[in-house]
Design a protein around this nucleic acid. Structure first.
Lengths: 340, 340
DNA sequence: CTGAAAGCGCTTACAG
DNA sequence: CTGAAAGCGCTTACAG
């Protein structure tokens, strides 16, 4: 069964393809095509099970009604939920979403952006990786609509929607201290990304304000590339170098999830031996016993704002730079058993 | 900066677009285009930062190098991992993957399939919802390459890659009984899907073999549409109607995850009051205390087989029906503390 | 109210 | 070895 085309309909009805095109696209009225004609076209289209060829349409109009979403890892629960929310909101605006995982790798991110642009996405949503500044600048230079989510580069002016990272970490660490912690470790992922630095700033601010001293031995950094092994090593180091350690703050969900497993393996009781809190609140933090105190991000709102900004930019076909929205949303700290 | 086209390159070099096209597509050799000419074209393409327009290419060739993946919910950990694995394997074959969530809704699934086909995907991977038989049959009729994953309709002959559901459930329930359970509840999602029926068969077979009797009051079914409320109600019912209940089997990860929360709320200790086991093994089942005994699915292999089958079908442009692969992979039961 | 025609950017026989 | 031309299926001014 060959797919029906516009000209199949036109031929069968003895009219021009142009007319059929207008009817199909709901422009019958503004082109003053008769009701009767419209109806005949619609009926025939239905009869032939006509579906417009998006390639032809896109080639002609230059639009794909598709947006690209590049995150670190679609299987990470945080990004999984972001992806789902973006899919839903974009769908409401008539856009389809193409997802990709950059694996925190700038080369992969670069090639994904190219692939997306090759596929003529109308715009991009990106959670940028480390060292991808030039990619973002190049999007800007080429006037490709895009919005950054979750992360950003302070020096690059562009649309971005992120959360208050410093404030979020501050509230969690302050709570750990309030619950009695005096030696609070910090297990970071190795990354020059600004949002992670801000979380660390929040941690230090909380210590400072509580008069709790900071030592560099309390700060450990693990490599993304050999994540599982390195977590084990660095947390063991953290504990052996700080025998009096009574709490650890994990500044992201994958760090927290893996960190809990390591602590379990090391036979540390949470919160009795070591209290913990985590940035991000994946589903299962309410399932573990004790539950994990966590900083929940407003994923729905984050996603909605991002889609709104991007769709607006795509539709206005903006030429004028300058009006960049830099949105910071608040987080919510959820207290569960793990913090003591 | 206008995007460069084939004819820009051709014009600057004073050659035809056809020649440029061949060089770009690596067909220089087989068309005996001189090394020198090829090099000049490649250089100019790089200089102009040429990127082929996929719409034009797709319109001409009828191929998009894209496959569609429709799952129940991309935010469900099982499907999240499937999506990631499919993305990776398909990428190795040069295909991009479009993801969509059907929410177990046949109308949504129908419209997603249409959207995917409109976007000219070369083939589809589908975890079909209940009541979507006609959609699958229509794909078959229209000769659109597709493979079913995770679920299938026994009466429809087509490629499918699933796991041994009955066997998996059987081993988990047998283990619960071996650990001392005598009254084993079963909390199901309401669905006529074959794979869920098979899991229930496995459960009953295990009871039968151990000489443990089955009563209908041990089987509860919750609605997907009001999932959270219904879980609470049905599990409470299950326990009050069976005061001697000492184990529950959850035949999917979302049932298990939610079920644990309900049991926690009902102050039931796992495994002392009630032992549990679950089909699917999301990350956090090893994090909870006790860990959850679970049936792990071979997600990588599942995904790889599906992609291999689909890519093969797309590439051979098969006309002859008949040779449908119906693959069943084994599962692995992982014993943790929750089963007693 | 409707038709004819150009053109989006490619690929692919066909000629030479 | 290379060029000229048709055509994929649409949309959109332009005519009438």
């Amino acid at each position: 069964m060959k797919k029906a085309t516009l000209s199949d309909i036109a031929k069968e009805l003895g009219v021009s393809t142009g007319l059929v095109s207008m009817v199909i696209n709901g422009k019958a009225r503004q082109n003053r095509i008769s009701e009767e004609m419209s109806q005949k076209v619609m009926d025939k289209a239905a009869e032939l099970n006509y579906r417009p060829n998006q390639f032809a349409r896109g080639l002609k109009t230059g639009r794909s009604n598709t947006i690209g979403l590049i995150v670190a890892d679609i299987a990470n629960p945080f990004f999984g939920k972001v992806a789902r929310a973006v899919e839903d909101y974009a769908g409401q605006h008539g856009f389809y979403v193409m997802f990709c995982s950059s694996d925190e790798n700038p080369e992969k991110s670069d090639s994904l952006i190219k692939v997306m642009i090759d596929r003529q996405v109308d715009g991009l949503i990106i959670a940028p990786t480390e060292k991808s500044e030039n990619q973002i600048l190049s999007l800007k230079k080429n006037n490709i609509p895009f919005v950054l989510i979750d992360r950003f580069f302070p020096k690059i002016k562009c649309h971005r929607v992120v959360v208050k990272n410093k404030e979020g970490a501050y509230s969690a660490v302050s709570h750990l201290i309030k619950m009695g912690a005096r030696t609070v470790g910090y297990v970071d992922i190795s990354s020059g990304m600004w949002h992670m630095k801000q979380r660390f700033e929040g941690y230090k601010a909380a210590l400072r304000e509580a008069g709790v001293s900071f030592k560099t031995s309390l700060y450990k950094e693990v490599q993304y590339s050999l994540f599982h092994e390195d977590m084990q090593i660095k947390i063991s180091d953290l504990i052996s170098e700080n025998p009096d350690i009574d709490a650890i703050f994990f500044p992201s969900n994958i760090l927290g999830i893996q960190g809990i497993q390591v602590l379990k393996r090391l036979q540390k009781k949470i919160p009795d031996d070591i209290a913990i809190a985590c940035f991000d609140d994946p589903e299962h933090f309410s399932l573990t016993e004790p539950g994990v105190s966590a900083i929940a991000q407003p994923i729905q709102e984050l996603s909605r704002k991002v889609v709104d900004l991007l769709v607006h930019d795509i539709n206005v076909d903006k030429k004028e730079h300058g009006e960049f929205q830099q949105i910071e949303l608040g987080t919510q700290f959820i207290i569960r058993g793990s913090s003591g």
